Simulated assay, not measured.
Amino acid sequence: MKSPDGDQELFTESYCKVCSAQLISESQRVAHYESRKHASKVRLYYMLHPIDGGCPAKKLRAENGSDGNSVDKNKCCTLCNMSFTSAVVADSHYQGKIHAKRLKLLLGEQPTLKTPGLKRSYACSTCSVTLNSIEQYHAHLKGSKHQAK
């Protein structure tokens, strides 16, 4: 995705500040900047950090001769830059996690993050290993390396 003028500090050859992605090689850089995930994060970034008083989606609507007040919410979500085929599809989107997350970001709230450290781990002191699930732990106990120790 091409960066707008004045955003060279956001999209460099070695780092994408919008996605917090370190870009090591040419192929990785090209793949990242052309990815859907990057494009989605850039759209969200510009919604939260408008340039010249408006986001790209609003500018696009204005160029098509439509004012910002006449958008049918059953046909388009300007926050997520999505269009819908029916009111049912639109309603499903508005009740979804992605829309709720973007709405929270737009309102300045921090999205809820999964708390690290609550994940259960299982340790085998005999072998000095830590396993992520009870299934892995039982498989380890039955394994030949553990049996040998």
Rank of each mutant, 00 (worst) to 15 (best):
P4D: 13
K114W: 00
E26Q: 15
A21S: 12
E63P: 01
R102Y: 02
E109T: 03
T115V: 13
D7M: 11
Y45E: 04
K17L: 12
G143A: 15
L113C: 02
A21P: 07
M47R: 14
V89A: 12
L107I: 01
I51Q: 11
V18N: 12
D7K: 06
D67A: 01
L141P: 00
Y94L: 07
E63C: 07
E63K: 15
L23M: 12
L113Q: 08
K73W: 08
D91A: 15
K73L: 08
K37C: 07
Q147Y: 00
L48V: 08
M82G: 03
A123Y: 09
G143N: 14
D91P: 00
E9M: 12
S66R: 13
H146W: 01
S125I: 09
H138V: 03
L44N: 03
G143H: 09
A21W: 11
D5Y: 13
G6S: 07
P56N: 11
V89L: 04
M47A: 11
V30Q: 14
P50I: 05
K104M: 10
Y122H: 09
H49T: 10
Q110R: 14
T112I: 09
K41Q: 15
K37F: 06
K104R: 06
A87Q: 02
S27R: 15
L60I: 09
E135Q: 14
V89Y: 01
C55M: 10
E135N: 13
C80I: 03
Q8H: 10
A100E: 03
S35K: 03
Y33C: 02
V88K: 14
M82R: 15
V42D: 02
S27C: 06
S20I: 10
K101G: 04
E63G: 06
H32W: 00
A39W: 00
L44V: 12
L60N: 09
D7N: 11
H38S: 03
S14Q: 12
A123Q: 07
N64W: 08
L106M: 09
A87P: 00
N132M: 05
P4S: 12
R43P: 00
E13M: 10
E135D: 14
L106R: 10
A31S: 15
G143S: 15
L60A: 13
H93E: 00
G54Q: 14
L141R: 06
Y122T: 01
Y94S: 06
F84G: 03
H138R: 15
S14L: 10
L107E: 12
C55L: 07
R120N: 08
G108F: 04
G108I: 02
G53N: 14
K37T: 10
H49F: 07
D7W: 14
P4Q: 10
S83F: 11
T12P: 12
G108V: 02
T130K: 11
V71F: 02
Q22E: 11
D67R: 03
K142H: 05
Y46C: 02
K149H: 13
N64K: 15
L23V: 06
V71C: 05
L10R: 10
S14F: 14
I98V: 12
T115C: 04
N132L: 05
K37N: 09
D91E: 12
K101P: 01
R61L: 15
A39C: 07
Y33R: 03
N74I: 00
C127I: 05
Y94C: 07
T112D: 08
H32F: 00
A90N: 02
V88T: 10
Q110T: 13
S25I: 00
K2V: 05
K41T: 07
S20V: 13
S27K: 14
D72M: 02
V71I: 13
H93N: 00
K149E: 05
K73P: 09
